[in-house]
Design a binder for these strands. Sequence first.
DNA 1: TAGCATGTGGAAAACGTTTACATCACGTGC
DNA 2: GCACGTGATGTAAACGTTTTCCACATGCTA
Lengths: 347, 347
Amino acid sequence: MPRNPTPTNADIRKVALEAGVSIATVSRVLNNPQRVSAATRERVLEAAARLGYRPNPLGQRLRKGRAETVGVVIPAPQGRFADSFFLELLAGLGEGLSEVGLDLLVTTSPPGPQELSCYQRLVESKRVDGLVLARTRRLDERIVYLLKRKIPFVAHGRSDLIDEPFPYLDIDGEQGFHKATQHLLNLGHRDIAFIGAPHELNFAQHRLKGYQRALAEAGLPLRAEWVLEGDLSEESGYQLTQALLGLPQPPTALLCANDLMALGALRALRERGLKAGREVSVIGYDDILLAHYTDPPLSTLHQPFHAMGRRLVEMLLARLGGAPAEELQEIWVPELILRGSDGPPQS
Amino acid sequence: MPRNPTPTNADIRKVALEAGVSIATVSRVLNNPQRVSAATRERVLEAAARLGYRPNPLGQRLRKGRAETVGVVIPAPQGRFADSFFLELLAGLGEGLSEVGLDLLVTTSPPGPQELSCYQRLVESKRVDGLVLARTRRLDERIVYLLKRKIPFVAHGRSDLIDEPFPYLDIDGEQGFHKATQHLLNLGHRDIAFIGAPHELNFAQHRLKGYQRALAEAGLPLRAEWVLEGDLSEESGYQLTQALLGLPQPPTALLCANDLMALGALRALRERGLKAGREVSVIGYDDILLAHYTDPPLSTLHQPFHAMGRRLVEMLLARLGGAPAEELQEIWVPELILRGSDGPPQS
DNA sequence: TAGCATGTGGAAAACGTTTACATCACGTGC
DNA sequence: GCACGTGATGTAAACGTTTTCCACATGCTA
């Protein structure tokens, strides 16, 4: 007969008393049920239910020496906003982690030297058992640090200049932009420009390479003035597209390393009275929510951030369970989503 | 002379040994420095630095009986994305919390009954010391629950149907849409429609009332067919705008309860060949990043989510320190940002 | 010189768990 | 009938802190 709907103040001792057993038995019932006889197990479970007992994670964590927590640092540029894809990734992570009873600890840090010290704080104070990294760089000091300290982590994205293996989940950006470029070539485009990401970002290289390789395979020259580097912001996409359109021979198609810059490109076209998908084709990367709703809707390469978040959790769990890094490296095939912002060139 | 750059494995006992004092003294040096003589203080600090000692938060938390953690649940509709404003709020929260050494625990939950049980899990297992709520509802069960359990929390937004006072930070949505409506009236509009938020959301009422009051003050009737309720998604704004434009007498101006719906409205206008800011004026709410970059740029009411996140942290800290709820209630004045999506009606 | 505040430090008891080890009863095989 | 595994439980020692007592020395007042 339940006495109190929500006491919440019961500790393991009270339960033991109520069930007439020792605290060790209570603990065993909860963690190792087959270690205890069915009769007492039943008795303990009843007592626990009666008192509304929940093991206090603070005690468990101290005893186990684990924080039961996974950390993620979102790089929030001072004043500016973090990229919205982070929220989708977070949702996937949070979902997966809560299913296995782990907590998700979120910190923000402006990119730069403070970022690393933020990671250090997290691991050196034993606040987290593992970490998830996103937006990896070619030579990512965070990864170097975590490898050196042997902290379990998984990365969303590779880090090509690091030799030691580590667990990652990436999308094949080279294949993605190779596909996209081929698609534009098939439509008849020959003058295709590329607005890339900051070169220190790991995916910047891959996406550029996909573009270059497709051009080379088609026997087309690479024109340096058509290969630009943006900072992933809408504004940057806008500016660089303006620049491209101001060239003596402007391109007829445009690849942007992320959707935000593609939105900027669309704005620049609009401002010049050019119709995207007709006068100039634009293809982005990420498939953010807004990509559905631009004018015209944006063609882009889909990144399933939510699913990737969930998969990253599985990988981190495996890593925490001792799986070798080499077996935790996945590269997913990108999907080209064609909406309205691409089309054959005007002749 | 430092012996090891990053040992990290030192506990308080080792430091005590190294400094030739008891662990109590080490603890005092760190928590209550003036309680110990300058000489030994110095000695302990040196020893701690030498060993790279950092107090283990797991031990601290157990002893203090506090999780030193603040929780926030982001309502992520299954499959769909959470609103991007959440990321900005999170960034503000994370920044403020890390400055005072508190952790931010993030969970996701689909809205609905599971949401409340998510909060229960968090507080009943003593995983967090306090909570931050966002997107409050008129009669918010989360708030009812937290008040009943006397859990410290702060809310982003009020909950009008709850009498008991609780700490909140809100923006005066009524004043905001009153301003916006007056602005449209001043421009000469008489036919102003309203696309609202789900009525269970607390701010839905306020924004509607601001619109109604401004119309009433101008002696204009409220036309029921111009007052619609959306679900805050882009798609919803699009659909409802389509509906409004299909009316025998379509409105010349449009208030949307959030920017996402306003983006949908812009898309609907575009599709009909109408120029926003000329044929039809549109004003949104939130001032999300993308509002800068639409065509035309969106006029909207600014919500400083980042700053609000930081302020919410201060308020929660005060609450945790025992400040009464009545003194922790703030309503900020909204700012109307005029970009290009509003203008005088075509005559 | 007794009495007492004050400043400084240590011993030890928490906080709530988990788990290694000890204990004990009960067959079971010889 | 005896040693002995086996299964079920209890005892107690951790985990790493903070904090409450005490103890002691010192210096001051009366």
